[in-house]
Design a protein around this nucleic acid. Structure first.
Length: 439
RNA sequence: GUGGCCAUAGUGUAGCGGCAACACUAGAGUUUGUGGAACUCUCAUCGCGGGUUCGAAUCCCGUUGGCCACCCCA
């Protein structure tokens, strides 16, 4: 007897040496149960894209780091602190894309997409990467779905259409109490003048503002408006706002955007403090928020200068886009108790008993495949009992039972799971018979 | 990057220094030719590493991961 306990001990020690890996910080697995939600978001995104005529584009996850430094902005948090740099065999500095727009604009020029009819409407759905602490609705790898309108006229109607597309997408997912916050950042010219005004205002109060704000003052003054520090909030309320300082072209543009939104009866809130953290935005910027959520669902804006930032001719690419966080949309749906039910088809379950029957069943499944009928099975199980139990658990409406006797007689039993009624049919006719029943 | 809380079967929890428990789930069986019920059995050495102790899931340190706040954002 002591022999056994010793043996048991040594096995345990071996077991202990095994190590279990955990997923990386901020990375998450999308498990089967969650795929229903993901499918839903993908499906609705595609429907919206189809309706408004956006074509899908997929760009690589890896890009030259420079693309983001030049467009997203080297002084922004996204690039400065959150970008994943990749060491590769070559000397290129690579980065995992932290956002989608820069890569799309790169692709636009690289493949001469300006030769297609303009404006070009594109949408994307894919993973993005930012190195930061995970939190509610925030991951290091996350998915965005985004819509872009590139080229053509710099027409405010496109601003409205991009906002509309995002709005409809969220609406179709049944996320209620949605609001759009909107602002205009002006163009290069009027923003520069405004920036100076803002700096002048804050400089006088620089002793009163927080440490971060003092840093922002010279680096990225518009971000001063974003500060949540109590003192800074008070100071902010008297600060000059962009909307009062737009040049006439920008003011007109913005007015028209709002008019188009009014036409649609799409409610929005003017938020003069909405700034957004990417350098390439100009004129219209917006964000989608919904009641009770700790995070915004998405946002976007116009980026008429991005082309130029990436080396194209000045003013050659008026463009606007939005992007929505897929995980956030899903969390919002779950938080609101929105259920996603898969469409239920009549399920057919094939049961086999004994080796010859198993072989026959294995091939029979292929015959069903040919005629487009999906058949569930549990080929590894032996007993009729346990297979029936599984069939029941899977919610099968029809069970097909193939045993020794049936194989011998070239027949098969069709069992109605609800009533328990059974019928024996010739094996050659079973596919046809099942097709008839699942109608 | 800073600070707080947390970590026990697949899931949700109990145990708070003295043989790791309960519910659900999953698997096997009672019943190798008939499911849904019932019953029986099986599945964790307590995230990982180290320390304190006769003795650690429990106390201490480190680490990894999660949650939350700041920052920022999708």
């Amino acid at each position: 007897m002591p022999k056994f306990s010793k043996r048991a001990k040594s096995i345990k020690i071996e077991k202990k040496a095994k190590m279990l890996f955990q997923s990386l910080k901020g990375m998450h697995d999308i498990l089967p149960a969650d795929q229903l939600w993901w499918d839903k978001v993908k499906k609705i995104s595609q429907d919206i894209a189809d309706f408004y005529n956006f074509s899908r584009i997929d760009t690589p996850i890896l890009e030259s780091a420079e693309i983001f430094e030049k467009s997203t902005g080297s002084a922004t948090d996204i690039v400065e602190k959150q970008m994943y740099y990749i060491k590769s065999k070559g000397k290129d500095r690579l980065a995992l894309r932290p956002e989608g727009t820069a890569g799309i604009v790169r692709a636009y020029f690289e493949h001469g997409l300006s030769r297609l009819s303009q404006p070009l409407k594109l949408y994307y759905f894919g993973p993005f990467f930012r190195y930061e602490s995970p939190q509610a609705g925030r991951y290091r790898q996350f998915y965005q779905v985004g819509f872009e309108i590139l080229g053509g006229e710099n027409d405010p109607v496109y601003d409205a259409q991009i906002i509309l597309a995002g709005y409809r997408l969220i609406e179709e997912l049944k996320i209620k109490n949605l609001t759009v916050e909107i602002n205009s950042l002006g163009c290069k010219n009027c923003r520069l003048i405004y920036r100076r005004k803002l700096q002048d205002y804050y400089r006088k109060l620089s002793v009163k503002i927080c440490k971060d704000c003092r840093r922002r003052l010279s680096l990225n003054p518009l971000r001063l408006l974003d500060c949540k520090n109590e003192n800074c909030q008070a100071i902010k309320t008297k600060a000059p706002i962009m909307l009062d300082n737009l040049c006439s072209a920008c003011r007109n543009h913005f007015r028209l955007v709002l008019e188009y939104l009014d036409e649609l009866n799409l409610s929005y809130i003017l938020n003069p403090y909405l700034v957004r953290g990417l350098d390439y935005y100009n004129r219209t910027v917006f964000e989608f928020t919904a009641e009770k959520l700790k995070f915004s669902l998405g946002g976007g804006g116009r980026y008429d200068d991005l082309g130029e930032m990436l080396g194209a001719k000045k003013g050659s690419l008026p463009a606007i886009g939005n992007s929505l966080g897929v995980e956030r949309l899903i969390e919002a749906m779950k938080e609101r108790g929105i259920d996603v039910v898969p469409k239920s088809k009549t399920k057919v379950f094939l049961i086999q008993i004994g080796q010859p029957a198993k072989k026959r069943a294995f091939c029979l499944i292929e015959e069903f495949r040919k005629s487009g009928v999906k058949v569930l099975e549990s080929l590894g199980r032996e007993s009729l009992n346990s297979q029936l139990r599984i069939a029941d658990k899977e919610g099968a409406a029809i069970a097909l039972i193939l045993g020794q006797r049936e194989v011998f007689e070239d027949s098969i039993i069709i069992r109605d799971m609800k009533s328990g009624a059974q019928e024996t049919v010739p094996l050659a006719k079973v596919v046809e018979e099942v097709r008839k029943r699942i109608r």
